[in-house]
Design a protein around this nucleic acid. Structure first.
Length: 510
RNA sequence: GGCCCGUUCGUCUAGUCAGGUCAGGACGCAAGAUUUUCAUUCUUGUAACAGGGGUUCAAAUCCCCUACGGGCUACCA
């Protein structure tokens, strides 16, 4: 297995949008593939026709693309092991189910839903420890183990519905190896005879998964921990199909938990948790309900990836910010944790902030301009870039920019009352008129010369810095927030500054 | 109920395999410093080995039990 080219797959079922847990699984697969110079496959597991939801396959691909996760083979890319949609591979599976029957490892079962229900009730009433269709109960059901040959053949000839179940051996210790948890032992007697092939002619996950992974030459299966209980079943399948020696290595990832501590995160959690569970906004085609996405919430894809990768993995160093390339370099399955983790919205914001301040003013300005355009503000890129440079440290998202910088584009309409009460004195208007006049005379209206002028004036008149500056800020910004006032003045320009001071004096009065 | 997996600050985690530094970092929170304001930044602080038994000179680390959490238990994946 070691010399072969590494091939991994991400195999979602299109039953709904991918949530952040699914993205993380895809991400780990991707990192593992790239790290080992391997191939990444996207396989769509649509064996349950009833649960398929329109649009989700497209959604899955768009989401992964947004995250920067690329596939080498898949439904869109094609490849030598296609088709990559299980519904299109339907005809492939039956022969393997038949092979298992021939070898005595599987059997036909003709039980109806009602009969299965009755079986369950009997077991419940009897207080059985082991429940399900198992080595004990299969003897009292309608299947090719209990029925005679002719009867079975006749039922099949009559087109009676049947499923094919695996025949789990008795009292066999099954040892399976998981890359993150090491050896897991299971007594086969506690397992049940899972359906491998459904009456609609489709395989179940278990069969399709094993067959496809084998046919697609998958070397490493990296999937969620919810699959760990079926690993012994899959191991048995590999063995019975004669593929034991080519069985892939398995790694089961710890689950993402709900922050309120009840169970694993699920698609149904939507926005209930106070943060999105989906990468991209999703509109439920049935209900029309809209669920928010990280992209629409203003997260950068690099930040999103960085947030997710740390939910269950860490590099063992103190580095927290990673580009995709750095992640590929640093990623190993050995450093994947064993316990489930909760998403922390606060830390997520911090990550985005880190990426935001790391971006160039030009890039941020381009994004901010889209928002400004919607507000019907047309202004030079150079100006927006300068604004962004002054405020980006104060924001987590580009969508925070407006709140942080609107005074650069529109003069304040009203003035923060508390501050007016506290700092706007009787003589304030006179002081501001003095300053206004002095600013008028500055030929080089730069931050430094404004600062010098104002400070000299304050010193000369023996005034308090705070008193004057806050009054000025009120006129220019409208409130007590914002970056350095001299920088604001330089950007606004002489004319605008003087106008705003004028208006401030008139509006606040005195 | 049964089977399987897990458990270190509020959260993400390092440290566990090869037992021995005040249990380290980050987010958050708090305080202080800086500042014309808010924020940033900087400094400091806050706070954890689930519990109990062993083994050992020595246990977060190895073993056992208990508790708690999670997953699975469909002709769903």
């Amino acid at each position: 297995m070691k010399d072969k080219q590494v091939r991994v797959r991400f195999a979602p079922s299109p039953t709904g949008p991918l949530h952040i847990g699914g993205i993380r699984t895809a991400l780990y697969n991707y990192l593992f593939a790239r790290k080992n110079k391997g191939v990444m496959v996207l396989r769509i597991e649509d064996t349950d026709q009833n649960r398929s939801m329109p649009g989700t396959e497209e959604y899955i691909m768009k989401s992964l693309e947004w995250c920067g996760i690329r596939f080498d083979e898949g439904v869109r890319e094609g490849g030598p092991y296609g088709p990559y949609r299980q519904s299109e591979r339907k005809s492939l599976y039956e022969q393997y189910a038949m092979k298992l029957i021939e070898k005595g490892h599987a059997y036909y079962a003709f039980d109806t839903a009602e009969e299965l229900e009755q079986m369950r009730k009997r077991q419940e009433a009897g207080g059985f420890k082991l429940t399900g269709y198992n080595q004990q109960s299969r003897l009292e059901m309608k299947n090719s183990l209990t029925l005679d040959k002719e009867d079975v053949q006749q039922r099949i000839n009559n087109c009676e519905k049947y499923v094919i179940r695996i025949r789990i051996p008795e009292n066999e210790e099954i040892k399976v190896f998981d890359e993150v948890r090491n050896w897991v032992n299971v007594d086969s007697s506690t397992m049940d005879d899972k359906v491998l092939f459904k009456s609609d002619g489709m395989p179940t996950y278990h069969l399709a998964n094993v067959v496809d992974d084998h046919m697609m030459k998958i070397t490493n299966v990296i999937r969620g921990e919810e699959w760990l209980p079926s690993l012994p079943l899959h191991a048995l399948l590999y063995k019975y199909l004669g593929w034991e020696n080519e069985m892939p290595d398995f790694a089961h990832l710890p689950l993402l938990l709900k922050p309120d501590g009840k169970g694993k995160l699920s698609k149904r959690d939507g926005d209930r948790l106070g943060f999105p569970v989906f990468p991209l906004q999703w509109k439920d085609p049935k209900t029309g309900e809209i669920y928010s996405g990280y992209r629409e919430s203003g997260y950068f894809p690099e930040a999103f990836v960085n947030i997710l990768v740390f939910l269950g993995w860490n590099p063992g160093t103190e580095q927290e910010l990673f580009t995709m390339e750095e992640l590929i370099d640093a990623f190993t399955l050995e450093r994947v944790g064993k316990s489930g983790s909760r998403f922390d919205p606060e830390k997520a914001k911090w990550f985005n902030h880190q990426y935001l301040i790391g971006k160039s003013n030009a890039e941020l300005a381009t994004q901010y301009e889209k928002i400004l355009k919607k507000k019907k503000i047309e202004i030079s890129v150079a100006y927006v870039e300068k604004v962004v440079g002054l405020i980006k440290e104060r924001a987590n998202f580009v969508s925070d920019f407006w709140e942080q910088s609107k005074f650069f584009f529109i003069a304040p309409e009203d003035y923060e009352e508390k501050l007016v009460k506290k700092k706007w004195k009787e003589n304030t208007p006179d002081i501001l008129r003095d300053i206004s006049a002095m600013l008028m005379d500055i030929s080089d209206f730069s931050r430094d010369s404004i600062e010098k002028t104002v400070k000299d004036y304050i010193e000369e008149k023996e005034l308090g810095m705070g008193q004057v500056m806050i009054a000025l800020r009120l006129c220019l910004v409208g409130s007590g927030m914002g970056p350095d006032l001299f920088a604001i003045m330089e950007l606004l320009g002489k004319k605008e500054v003087i106008q705003r001071v004028q208006r401030g004096i008139e509006n606040i009065g005195g």
